[in-house]
Every structure is written in structure tokens, then in C-alpha cells.
Design a protein around this nucleic acid. Structure first.
Lengths: 339, 339
DNA sequence: CTGAAAGCGCTTACAG
DNA sequence: CTGAAAGCGCTTACAG
């Protein structure tokens, strides 16, 4: 009984009402604070509740009010590297709001299973729905009109432009990375980009351009394209070196590309950060931190847990603005850039 | 309305009863299957329910039955590298069982906050409790006696030997790694161990001994100790080489140690796996997979997601055996061992 | 095997 | 501002 939680039958609201000398209805209103109740009465009820250590039975309350205290969570592939922290952040935030999470993992596009899940969620009378994808390239079918409770789309696009989306701020990530390079004295900045058709890659580049433009500059050298891998990053850097462009820094589309670039630089005798400064994106522990625990790269963190957290928190707040909302990226400075 | 979920007011059990021509009570029993009901009646009710697409209101059901369909989850530090997949596995399994998860993250030892969380969980009338830690070295205070619903301890020890624990099978991990080395033709196997006082390290070594003993062998060379880092792993390997022991394989306490050992081998001109085969433990993506996506190490996977899944599933099953239960480690073969 | 009735513990119009 | 009463939609003894 370490935490002293008593196991006796719990106090009911009627007990509180009796002690406070008011009716059940009044006690309920006093505690829930919404209706007009004299401050004196309210206080009397509060004191009684406190003294009896009253905790309203959540089941009864839910049944009577129609609010379940449960949020439905539809994850696309919650196990995925990037989706997992987003989902975790959301679920932890729900807990902090005293909301339970009913999580169905699956392919949001398999309409059979999906349809079943939706039925179950309605039967559960969820207070809200979180649709969590595994990146901005992923589009979820809009479920908003299937529910009369708030629906949020996190780490995914949706098929309906009026939906409320929570996404990592890739543009700001690009801006932040580039601004850091500018702030540390670089003026000739190149870019090793992600895939041509990737929204994330486009936005990171757009953010870079934002920062450069504000400084009256332009990207240096060819904007290379690659999938997000180290091997391609190495090739991209080789291409950049070969182009003959003069540059003192490179904003890399992600950390893998940056690591590939480092390899090419090492082979070419280009010193980092003395000759060329490098910044990546993702700040993924396994990628960016060496096995001895030392950081090997400056990287922008998209704050994915925070992203999930924000999306979940937005159900409680009355923030219904449609469109895109962002978590704020942060900069993690390592030895690949000057200070 | 992509998934065709109707928004009209839902069918109640009384509607089903009316259609089936039975009483409300009979309809309830027929659907819930527990009481003695004639098969004919049961079928009639089923058909009616099916036809009306009846879904019982979970809130009413909970209120009437006292079962919330919600499981409390107390995580120690759910963000931690190893704790996260365990928690995620558990939560996904709960969802698959149609159980919501009310997750409170915090320090299980801060009795103030803990006491609050426990109150809330009781008020919620949870059907069970999952206490999730961040490793076997972590001990949770036993909460079992604070609840009259099942409590499971996952990825943590507990202060009460009668509790039900779900843990990674470190001993089997050691056995599996060693057996793999034996199976691929090695006979002189050394060990680079984790910290002296670590339960995980002890058990991995015990498992190694199991396998060797079964083969009529003994560990070769000094059993080195280190924290789990790459730097220490490198030092341990140096110590092993210097000892003059003749060995053809090394079971490393974890992947970091194995990677450190690889460095030392490379520097000493020892070829892997030709001269020495290496196996690690953890199979952590960021550690064991190179940034180009290629695996660089043979490693035992402790199956942490599966661990969480098993713990959560055990609430549904009537498996109340006290003591330790395990997830089964698997072997992921890479280029550091022969095939 | 079946049904009438009580009851789970709150919230919420409604009347005063 | 306060209270009596209905009601949320099921489940579960209990009686038949």
C-alpha cells in the first residue's frame, strides 16, 4: 500500500452533496463550474469534496455526459522510424490531458479494416480523432465528415484542404540550417537536395532560399537531387565538387546525405568544417550520434515528438484553424559547422 | 463519406430486442453469450443485430458493467531509446484488443505524482495496469495491491517477487549468439561483457555459458567488463588481443561493444569475420545498420516491441503465473560472422 | 430458458 | 441561484 491509495468503496457525489448540505444537482454544477452557482455554495461543495477525497466515477460521468474521455488514434505504420516518436508524443500528451488513446494501427487506405475501426470508434463515442501518418508525402483520406468530434491529421497530408494538419516545418528547417551557416560566416552556400518530387525536399530548399534571399544571396553551384541515402549523398557531393563551384558551406537535405558528403570530402582532402561547413536535417540519434556518444554532425531537428504533442494538445484547445500547423525545428550544433 | 459510416442516431439494444421479438434482457444475454439462452433465440437476436448493424454503446456498457475497456499504462521514461518500442508495442496490442490506453509518463518513484495518477486510474475504473520501465536494471515499486485488476510489469523489475514480469530474455540472447558462433564452425569463443553489476550483462554471459557447456566448451580468454560503449568495447578487445588467448570468435555484450571491437581489430589487422567472428546484442537500427542501409554486424534482437505486445496481451489471456516471462530473441545475421 | 425491474452514478433541461 | 426528476443505454440479480 506504498502510495496509500485506499481500496474502500469510493465516495459518491451524493455523499458530497449531503455533507455540503445541497442537492445532488447543485453539487454537480458546483464542481463542474459551468452553471450559475453562488460562490459561497460552490466553495462549500468544494470543501466537502476535498474533505471526502471525492473522485467522480469516470464511467458514470461519461455515460451521463456522452463524453468518453477517449481519443481515437489511427496510425499508418506506427512502428516506422519517424512515425513512432510522433505517435508516442501524441499519446503521452493525451495522457497528460487525462485522455485515453484507442489506437488502431494499419493501412489507412484499406477501407475494409478502416471502416471497421471507424465503427468501433463511434461506438466508443470518442471525443476526437487523431490520424497519424508517416510523413508529409503520405496522404490520408479525409475522415473529418465521418465524425462530429474534432479530427486532426498529424504527419500526413489529407484529401480535404479544410482539414487541420500538423506537420514538421520543413521550410523553417531549411531556413534555420542556412541561417546558421550564414551566421557562422559562410556566404557561398550550396545544396545537396532530396528527391525531386518530395514535398519535404522542396520545402527544405525553399527555406534555404528564404534565408539566402534575405541576405541578398543565392545558392551556389548546381542543386543536386538524390534519394535520401548516404550513397547518393556521396555522389551528389562529388558532382558538386566536380562542377567547379566555389562554396564554403553545404546545406544537405538530410543527415544521410550529409554523411555521404563527408565521406566524399574526406576522400577529396576537403576538411570539415575548415574548408566546408555541413548541416543536415533529422538529428536522428542513430544517424548523427557516433557510437561512442559523440555528435558528428550539425543537424536540424524537426521535433517529431513535439509535433505529435502539439497535434494532440490542439484537441483540447479551441484551435480549429484549418490548414497546416507546425512544430518548430531546432538546431543541434556539431563539429561539421563552425561556431 | 468515403467509408460509408452513417451519421444517423445509432440503433439501441431495445431496437434489436423489438425486431427479434424478445425482451431487452434476453437480447443482452444473447449477444453477450454468457448466460443460458436457447440457440434459436440467440440466433434470432444475432440476425436482428446484424440486420440493424447494432453496435452497443460502449459508454452505457461500461457504466453498467463496471468495465471501462481502458488499461492504465505507467511508463517510466517512454521517450528513452529502448523504452519507446516496448511502450509502443504494448499500446498497439491494446488497440488490437479494443482497449484504450491511458498513459501516464513520469518517474514511477515520485510518489506524489504517482499517487495522483493512481487515483485517476481508479476513478477511471481501469481494467488493468501496465507498468513499463526502461530495462531490467530498473525496479518499479509494486502497485499490484493497489488494484483489484491485473497488473503487469514490463521491461522492469518490481519490488514484489509475486508480480508478473515481462522481460527481454537476455540469457537466451547470449545462448543464441553463442550457438550461432558454434554452428558456423567456431570453437574458441571469447566474451566482451557489459558492466559487472548489470543483470542484463550477467544473463547474457550466463546464456553464453549455457551454449558452451552444452558443447563441452568453455569461454576463451579473460571475460572483460566495460560500460556498454564503443570506446570501452575497443579497449576490451585490445585487452583480449593482448592476453594472448587464441580465439576465433567473440560474443560481445552489445552492439556498441562489438563496433568498438571491430575498430580495434581493423587497427590490428585482424580480419572480420575471417580471423574473428563477432556477434552483438540489440540490433538497433541506428547502431547496426550503416547509413547506406547495409547491415554491418550480426546481432541478437531482443524483440522489444514484441515484449510490450506480450505483456499487453497477457491481460486478456488468463495467464497469471507470477515471475518472469520473456519475449524470444531473434538472430539477425550480418557480415561480422560466417554463414 | 425468458422477462420485468432495478440500478450503475452521474448530468442536464426544466421548473421554481 | 437551487432542486426534483428524468434520463443516458446498457447489465444483472431475481423471479417465474
Amino acid at each position: 500500500m506504498l502510495f496509500g491509495v485506499p481500496r474502500e468503496k469510493s465516495v459518491r457525489l451524493s455523499d458530497v452533496a449531503a455533507v455540503a448540505g445541497v442537492s445532488l444537482a447543485t453539487a454537480s454544477k458546483a464542481l463542474n463550474g459551468n452553471t450559475r452557482i453562488s460562490e459561497a455554495t460552490r466553495e462549500r461543495v468544494r470543501v466537502a469534496a476535498e474533505r471526502l477525497d471525492f473522485r467522480p466515477d469516470a464511467l458514470a460521468r461519461s455515460f451521463a455526459s456522452g463524453r468518453s474521455g477517449t481519443i481515437g488514434v489511427l496510425t499508418h505504420r506506427a512502428k516506422n522510424t519517424f512515425a513512432q516518436p510522433v505517435a508516442m508524443g501524441a499519446i503521452l500528451q493525451l495522457g497528460a490531458q487525462n485522455q485515453a488513446a484507442l489506437v488502431y494501427d494499419g493501412d489507412v487506405k484499406e477501407s475494409k479494416a478502416m471502416s471497421d475501426s471507424l465503427r468501433e470508434l463511434r461506438a466508443r463515442r470518442i471525443d476526437g480523432l487523431l490520424v497519424i501518418g508517416d510523413g508529409h508525402e503520405h496522404t490520408s483520406p479525409s475522415l473529418t465528415h465521418n465524425f462530429d468530434v474534432p479530427v486532426r491529421y498529424i504527419f500526413t497530408a489529407s484529401s480535404d484542404p479544410n482539414d487541420v494538419l500538423y506537420l514538421p516545418d520543413n521550410r523553417e528547417a531549411g531556413r534555420l540550417a542556412t541561417q546558421h551557416l550564414l551566421d557562422t560566416g559562410n556566404t557561398r552556400i550550396a545544396h545537396l537536395g532530396g528527391p525531386q518530387n518530395s514535398i519535404a525536399a522542396e520545402r527544405r530548399l525553399a527555406g534555404m532560399t528564404d534565408a539566402l534571399t534575405a541576405a541578398g544571396l543565392e545558392p551556389v553551384g548546381p542543386i543536386t537531387r538524390s534519394d535520401w541515402t548516404r550513397v547518393c549523398g556521396a555522389a551528389s557531393m562529388a558532382e558538386l565538387l566536380q562542377s567547379g563551384a566555389m562554396f564554403d558551406a553545404v546545406f544537405c537535405g538530410n543527415d544521410h546525405i550529409a554523411l555521404g558528403a563527408m565521406e566524399t570530402c574526406a576522400a577529396a582532402g576537403v576538411r570539415i568544417p575548415d574548408d566546408v561547413a555541413l548541416v543536415g536535417v533529422d538529428n536522428w540519434e542513430g544517424t548523427v550520434v557516433d557510437q561512442d556518444g559523440s555528435r558528428q554532425l550539425t543537424s536540424v531537428d524537426l521535433e517529431l515528438m513535439e509535433l505529435g504533442r502539439l497535434g494532440a494538445a490542439s484537441m483540447a484547445a479551441a484551435d480549429h484553424a484549418p490548414g497546416e500547423h507546425f512544430s518548430t525545428p531546432t538546431l543541434a550544433i556539431g563539429p561539421s559547422s563552425r561556431v
